[in-house]
Design a binder for these strands. Structure first.
Length: 427
RNA sequence: GUGGGUGUAGCUCAGUUAGGUAGAGCACUGGAUUGUGGCUCCAGGUGUCGCGGGUUCAAAUCCCGUCACUCACCCCA
């Protein structure tokens, strides 16, 4: 086969869709209990939106965007969800109608990176945004919500990394201090980090290269250079988390690549399951200046995003019970017509029905009934047509009975209602 | 963009060291059972051995090139 899907963009086949649906339902349930409401924004936005919000220097903007020109517009497949949501928030004047807004979204994002385990070019994110609350209590509540959500999913071993970046001036001040610390050991740094020294020194803190890690030993902490208000915000956040009993790890080296963050910054890392090297299950932070920079009022905001593929890797395997269904096995054209009618009657009673109309042998139809985990099979052949009955087989009990055709649907529905839900689908 | 690993049946993989008729399990179809599933037994494969070239009497196996997938780096969900 010479036609393949695009690299890094994956199909989700029905065999694994159950896990996706359960994850999505759990997310919606959790955030809606926190009074978030869903927002759906386009997959395509003006390129300028991402350049302005994420920042020209960020890797996402520099080399990972799917951008194209169409009829004179410069467009981009969204690489993340926060920018589009903020754009919609501003465009519809939401701030003027309500002082406090909680939104969530769920959908695919696109980044033209080299794929690997847990990182794909089309990947799914679920995220939340709160507009109009300066924190820090809401920051704590959001982090606590995430930790609770992970626990609900059965993802046990997660660590909340927490940091504060202060305001824009803090970043500049700290960058200078960091360069002062690293410059003397410049020769010992990795090539990447030598370059970062001039472009974005904070990123050196994030490097996994042992040489860089060593060089960062003893580097000043960004928390030490926060101004008074930022420091008070961070301390209050920690106190709220303590009060909630939500464990966290203060990590002054947490940086993250999006340039729009201010003050609170967090990332949740996992370790179990099939997770590969990409162990950031989710991350977020405060972006108090974004709404204003997009032309809106001065509204503080905080948000996070979760990577659904990574959550699925980290989640324990589960076997979902298959809902009961009825397989109908007709023999011959007349019986097939009768089968279609009976199936419609069953579906009107809320019973899933599967008509095997391939015209194969009874044996093959019953084999299929077993394969699809049907609870009940119905045989309609020449004999049944003559007698005006159908043969109803309870596949688990190895029992069968003949029922008048007119009562068939009700009889089957009663049989199913009495039966224990059983069987499990291959995952 | 950089580095490693892997490409053999629909799927998971043996077979490559030492060149010699292309295999197993699962899945699928039929039969044993003329209209009765799961278990068992029997039968059923024309697979571009990723692709192209080279060496050789002979290449899945050796050599060169190329493509794809995958893991990791950078960075991020």
């Amino acid at each position: 086969m010479n036609l393949r899907g695009v690299k890094g963009m994956n199909d989700v086949l029905p065999g694994e869709i159950g896990r996706w649906q359960r994850l999505e339902a759990a997310f919606r349930s959790t955030v809606e209990l926190h009074r978030y409401r869903e927002v759906r924004t386009p997959l395509v936005e003006p390129t300028e939106l991402f350049v302005r919000s994420i920042g020209e220097e960020a890797d996402i903007v520099r080399k990972e965007m799917y951008s194209f020109d169409q009829h004179g517009d410069n467009l981009t497949l969204r690489p993340e969800g926060t920018a589009g949501a903020a754009r919609a928030y501003v465009e519809h004047g939401v701030a003027a109608r309500e002082p406090l807004t909680r939104w969530y979204y769920l959908g695919p994002m696109f980044r033209a990176e080299r794929p690997q385990k847990g990182r794909y070019r089309q990947f799914w994110q679920a995220g939340c945004e709160v507009y109009g609350d300066p924190g820090p209590a809401t920051d704590a509540e959001m982090i606590d919500m995430l930790v609770s959500f992970f626990r609900e999913l059965g993802i046990a071993s997660v660590t909340v990394h927490l940091n504060s970046l202060g305001g824009p001036d803090t970043r500049v001040r700290y960058g200078a201090a960091l360069v002062a610390h690293l410059e003397p050991q410049k020769d010992a740094l990795s090539d990447d980090s030598k370059r970062r020294l001039t472009t974005n020194p904070l990123r050196v803190l994030d490097s996994k290269d042992p040489r860089d890690v060593a060089a960062c030993e003893g580097a000043p902490s960004i928390l030490a250079v926060l101004d008074e208000a930022d420091r008070a915000h961070f301390d209050a956040l920690c106190r709220y988390l303590d009060r909630l009993g939500t464990p966290y790890l203060v990590d002054p080296r947490l940086v993250r690549g999006l340039d729009y963050y201010t003050r609170t910054l967090f990332e949740i890392r996992g370790s179990g399951g099939d997770l590969g090297a990409q162990n950031a299950l989710g991350g977020g932070g405060r972006y108090d200046r974004m709404v204003r920079e997009l032309g809106g009022p001065d509204v503080p905001s905080i948000g996070f995003a979760l990577g659904l593929e990574r959550l699925l890797l980290a989640m324990p395997p589960d076997a979902a019970p298959e809902p009961p269904c009825v397989a109908i096995a007709p023999m011959g054209d007349v019986a097939t017509g009768e089968a279609l009618l009976l199936a419609r009657e069953l579906r009107r009673l809320g019973v899933a029905a599967d008509v095997d109309a391939r015209g194969g042998s009874l044996k093959s139809m019953l084999r299929r009934a077993n394969a699809i985990a049907a609870r009940v099979a119905v045989v309609i052949g020449a004999g049944e047509l003559t007698r005006g009955t159908v043969q109803i087989k309870d596949l688990a009990q190895h029992a069968q009975l003949d029922a008048p055709r007119a009562e068939a649907a009700d009889t089957i529905a009663r049989l199913l209602a009495a039966a224990e839900p059983t069987g499990s689908a291959p995952t």
